[in-house]
C-alpha cells in the first residue's frame, strides 16, 4: 500500500505537531534552561553550568520540598496502592451493592482536584469544619484544632486529602482480577483453600504486573500534585507542606526565576524516570509493545 504513505504522514502530522510544540519543546526548554540564569522574559539569559543545582542543595526551601515530595511518593505508592488493591479484591466477589461502592469510591477521582481541595479546606476548617464539629459533638474538644494551619497537623492533614482515594487503582486492579482464569480458583477449592487464602495465594500473585503499573501511576501522580496543596495550605504554614511542584510554580509564575524553576522541572522529570525504572525492575513488568 505504498500510495498511502502520504496519507499516513498527513494523519499523524497533527499529533506530531501538537506533541512537538507543547510537550517536546517544553521538555527541551526545561532541561536546557536549568543550566542558565534567566530571570523574567526581558531579562538576560546566561549559561551558568550547574549553579542552579548547586544553589538548590543549599536552599532550605528546595530541600524541604524535595523531602516532602519523596515522602508523599513513598506513601502514595505503598499505602494508597494497598488500599486500592484490597478494595478491588474484596468487591471482586461481586456481592450485592458492589457497584454502588465502586461508584462511591471513584467519585473523588472524577471531580476536579481544585474542588476537592476546596472541600477539604472546609472539612478541616477550624470554625465550621466537619471534623471539628464532630469532635465537639463527641465532647472531644481537646482535639479541636485548625488542622491545615497548625504546624503539628498540617502535613498529615494535607496527606489525608488524597491518600485514601484510590479509585483509579481499584479500577485497574478490578479489571485485571476479571482476567484471572477461573481454573486457578477451582484448583484452590479442591485443595480446600479458604477465601483469604485464595486472595493471598491465587489472586495477589496474578496481580504483580498491574500492581507495578499502579505503583508507577501513584508515584508519578505526586510529581504533578499541585491543586490539593495550593487550594488548602499553599505549602504552609511556613514550609510545612511545601512540595516540588508548588515550589516550581512559585519560582516560575510568581517570581519569574525561570532558570531555577526549570532546574526544579528537570529534577521532577528525572525523578519520574528513576521511579519508572526502579518500579519496572522490582516488578519485572512485561512490556507488551
Amino acid at each position: 500500500m505504498k500510495k498511502n504513505t502520504l496519507w499516513l504522514y498527513l494523519f499523524t502530522a497533527p499529533l506530531i505537531i501538537f506533541f512537538v510544540v507543547f510537550l517536546l519543546a517544553p521538555v527541551i526548554i526545561v532541561f536546557c534552561s536549568s543550566f542558565m540564569e534567566w530571570k523574567g522574559f526581558s531579562g538576560e539569559i546566561s549559561f551558568i553550568g550547574f549553579d542552579n543545582y548547586i544553589a538548590a542543595m543549599k536552599d532550605a526551601e528546595f530541600i524541604v520540598s524535595f523531602k516532602h515530595t519523596i515522602i508523599w511518593i513513598v506513601l502514595q505508592s505503598t499505602v494508597h496502592v494497598a488500599i486500592g488493591v484490597s478494595f478491588a479484591i474484596i468487591i471482586s466477589r461481586k456481592f450485592k451493592g458492589w457497584k454502588v461502592l465502586r461508584t462511591a469510591f471513584m467519585i473523588p477521582n472524577m471531580i476536579s482536584a481544585s474542588a476537592l481541595g476546596f472541600i477539604f479546606l472546609m472539612i478541616f476548617n477550624g470554625q465550621i469544619g466537619l471534623v471539628n464539629s464532630v469532635l465537639h459533638k463527641l465532647h472531644l474538644d481537646q482535639f479541636v484544632r485548625n488542622w491545615l494551619f497548625d504546624p503539628n497537623t498540617a502535613f498529615v492533614t494535607v496527606t489525608l486529602t488524597w491518600l485514601l482515594f484510590a479509585g483509579l487503582i481499584m479500577l485497574l486492579v478490578l479489571t485485571e482480577i476479571g482476567t484471572i482464569p477461573s481454573s486457578l480458583y477451582e484448583a484452590a477449592d479442591l485443595d480446600g483453600a479458604s477465601q483469604w487464602q485464595k486472595d493471598l495465594f491465587v489472586t495477589l500473585p496474578q496481580l504483580r504486573n498491574v500492581i507495578g503499573t499502579c505503583m508507577i501511576i501513584a508515584a508519578t501522580s505526586k510529581l504533578k500534585e499541585f491543586e490539593l496543596i495550593y487550594l488548602t495550605t499553599k505549602g504552609g504554614p511556613g514550609t510545612e507542606t511545601m512540595s516540588l511542584p508548588l515550589y516550581l510554580y512559585n519560582t516560575s509564575i510568581v517570581q519569574n526565576n525561570f532558570g531555577y524553576s526549570n532546574m526544579i522541572g528537570t529534577v521532577l522529570i528525572a525523578l519520574g524516570l528513576v521511579l519508572i525504572y526502579i518500579i519496572n525492575k522490582v516488578f519485572k513488568i512485561a512490556s507488551d509493545e
Binding site: 499523524t12 499529533l15 506530531i16 506533541f19 510544540v21 507543547f22 510537550l23 519543546a25 517544553p26 521538555v27 526548554i29 526545561v30 534552561s33 522574559f41 508507577i216 501511576i217 508519578t220 510529581l223 504533578k224 500534585e225 499541585f226 511542584p245 516550581l248 510554580y249 516560575s252 509564575i253 525561570f258 524553576s261 526549570n262 526544579i264 522541572g265 528537570t266 521532577l268 522529570i269 519520574g272 519508572i276 509493545e289
Partner: peptide, 24 residues
C-alpha cells in the same frame, strides 16, 4: 517512534512544563 514517545509522555509530570508552555 510515535507509540514509544506517546507512552513516555503518558507519565510525564506535566506540572514541570508550566514555564515553557507559558512562554510558548
Amino acid at each position: 517512534p510515535i507509540v514509544v514517545i506517546m507512552s513516555i509522555s503518558l507519565l510525564l509530570p506535566i506540572t514541570a512544563l508550566i514555564m515553557p508552555v507559558y512562554s510558548i
